[in-house]
């Protein structure tokens, strides 16, 4: 009698409970993996957005004045080049995370447009006149880049969610 009861408990209660536990555990792992990937990707995109903002702030300071009006113009130009370097790295490092949604070539083109808006023309020249049209070019390039990044990120996250 006790043997039958033991078998019944094992068959009807214990086995389903174990299966349910394993299933829940797998679901939890998958959900946790998805959350970690989502957070990592969002953090990478946020870094790029911050780097764009830094470029924008420095560029406003630089191109809104004649070079002769700012004794630290040369230092500002160096800071812009450093910010451009940060943006290049953060944006291009994002490509593998958005694989299938944005290519190296497309991202390089987006970054190139931002760089060009800020560091072309008379950039770095001691007799450089102020040029507010550059800020408009920069705003245009950064809006295109930001929108493209967000679209790619959202598409990537939608697929990740569907798969899991």
């Amino acid at each position: 009698m006790w043997g039958d009861l033991g078998s019944w408990i094992a068959d009807k209660l214990l086995a389903p409970a174990i299966v349910a536990s394993i299933f829940s555990w797998i679901l939890l792992l998958v959900a946790e993996g998805h959350r970690a990937r989502r957070e990592a990707l969002s953090k990478q995109v946020e870094t790029v957005r911050n780097d764009i903002l830094t470029m924008w702030t420095l560029a406003c300071d630089y191109w809104s004045r004649d070079a002769s009006a700012n004794p630290e113009d040369e230092i500002l130009a160096e800071r812009i080049l450093l910010a451009e370097q940060d943006l290049r790295y953060s944006a291009m490092e994002l490509v593998p995370s958005l694989s299938g949604y944005i290519s190296d070539t497309e991202m390089a083109g987006l970054v190139a447009d931002v760089s060009r808006a800020v560091t072309s023309g008379s950039f770095g020249e001691p007799d450089r006149p102020k040029d507010l049209s550059r800020l408009r070019s920069l705003r245009s390039a950064t809006v295109v880049m930001r929108d493209r990044l967000l679209t790619a990120r959202n598409a990537r996250l939608r697929v990740t969610f569907r798969l899991h």
Binding site: Q85, V95, D104, T105, A108, V111, R116
Partner: peptide, 13 residues
Amino acid sequence: ERALLPYVALAKQ
């Protein structure tokens, strides 16, 4: 180096 690809794009432009 992936981070230098924007310069390739700019030079071609």
